[in-house]
Design a protein around this nucleic acid. Structure first.
Lengths: 117, 117
DNA sequence: AAAACATTTCGTAATTTTGCGAAATATAAA
DNA sequence: TTTATATTTCGCAAAATTACGAAATGTTTT
């Protein structure tokens, strides 16, 4: 009879982002792509990573699925870039999670603008 | 022939912390414990989570293994608290990773317009 | 049209993760 | 000493993750 509680959407989102970041290959890719105006091709990345092409492709697929990156088809290449909107959202989520212990200033986002109370 | 590169210790550490955070149960626990002076008993947590006791115990074990929490034996209870030192280190690692995009651009795309139409 | 190229998808295998209930451990209370 | 309590460990099963090479897809170049 004791109803088991559900996770809040925020907790679920955080866990999903963390899962996307939970492999060295994916950390490496995001570290690269998150830098300003940086985009990459799968073929460039594979030379910098200790994995094969098809495995890299799977990691890129996962990052795409998580929304953190996007692939722009530019035949016969695919140009991968960070998805700025989702990346910023993930950053915000994580930053507030990591600083919940010492937050004294409350911030909120309205219409994509960060406002401080 | 082409020597495959290794991951830097920083990338490996980040991936490990992210893995520790990659499950809603573990996010929930850390969210709780990271608040100032907050500690919990396994029995308190299980009522707030949609999993059984033995499963919770496994998640706690994993968080302990990752170094983010610690368990103080307080018979017959075990009091779980954040490991402040490691938590702060993880926060620092993550914060700088998430804000690397403000750093200098390193792009692997050169002469995009010339090479690709 | 054929060959070369960039990348993904498929099929498969090994390993890890997640979850549960039962049993074990260890202490406290009766 | 028996019983109750708090928690973990064990044994198991289902599902997910990671990795690879081969084959497939689609685009250029020759």
């Amino acid at each position: 009879m004791t109803n088991k509680p559900q996770f809040t959407p925020e907790v679920l989102k955080l866990a999903n982002v963390a899962k996307a970041l939970s492999h060295p290959v994916r950390i490496f890719i995001l570290q690269k792509l998150s830098k300003m105006n940086s985009c990459c091709y799968s073929g460039d990345l594979v030379d910098e990573l200790p994995i094969g092409r098809s495995t890299l492709s799977q990691h890129l697929k996962e990052l795409k699925y998580s929304g953190l990156i996007q692939g722009e088809i530019n035949p016969p290449y695919i140009k991968y870039c960070i998805n700025r909107k989702n990346w910023e959202e993930a950053k915000l989520l994580f930053t507030s999670f990591l600083n919940e212990d010492n937050a004294e200033e409350i911030s909120c986002v309205i219409n994509d603008t960060i406002r401080y109370k």
